[in-house]
């Protein structure tokens, strides 16, 4: 049994952490690849409806977002709880949509322009009135490809 007897003071061996940075770097790269930068600061709250017949939005560069929902807490005192439209970083009226579409279209390359898509992120509890106003403006601006953003059911 003497074979297993400890000789002298046993020291805890130091843990080798030299591969830890590599490990974390690979997690970092994973996240950099699968995620995309958040583009705007949301000023409206929305919970999109759920559906079954959804398509994936393939190329993010073709998609422009229009958000419709209740203003977030910070803005409620000023704007109330009525549903509002957010374009880029600002609250907007339906009349601003045409301008917004023009600007978005201008920022695209010539080849991509016909494939522009508008993604409508609308809160479930919104009334149809404001959505229809937006759709009318989109039609006027000839932005006819529309995607109603939703979650898979």
């Amino acid at each position: 049994m003497s074979k297993f007897q400890k000789k002298g003071k046993a020291e805890m061996p130091e843990l080798n952490t030299s591969s830890l940075p590599d490990l974390i770097f690979s997690i970092l790269f994973f996240f950099m690849i699968v995620t995309s930068m958040r583009e705007v600061e949301l000023k409206v709250e929305f919970k999109v409806p759920s559906g079954t017949e959804l398509e994936k939005l393939e190329r993010k560069s073709l998609v422009s977002h229009i958000y419709i929902g209740k203003p977030t807490k910070d803005f409620r005192a000023k704007l109330g709880t009525q549903s509002r439209i957010q374009l880029n970083d600002k609250f907007a009226d339906p009349s601003h949509i045409r301008e917004f579409v023009m600007a978005e279209r201008e920022s695209m390359s010539e080849r991509d322009k016909p494939f522009m898509k508008m993604s409508l992120k609308v809160d479930r509890d919104t009334q149809m009135g404001i959505v229809t106003d937006v759709k009318m403006e989109l039609r006027e601006a000839m932005a006819l490809s529309v995607v109603y953003s939703a979650t898979q059911r």
């Binding site: 958040r38 939005l57 898509k117 993604s119 039609r139 995607v147």
Partner: peptide, 13 residues
């Protein structure tokens, strides 16, 4: 960053 893969119902106006 946000992880959400955007999905939606595509319609043509």
């Amino acid at each position: 960053t946000s992880m959400d893969t955007d999905r939606g119902l595509a319609v043509r106006l």
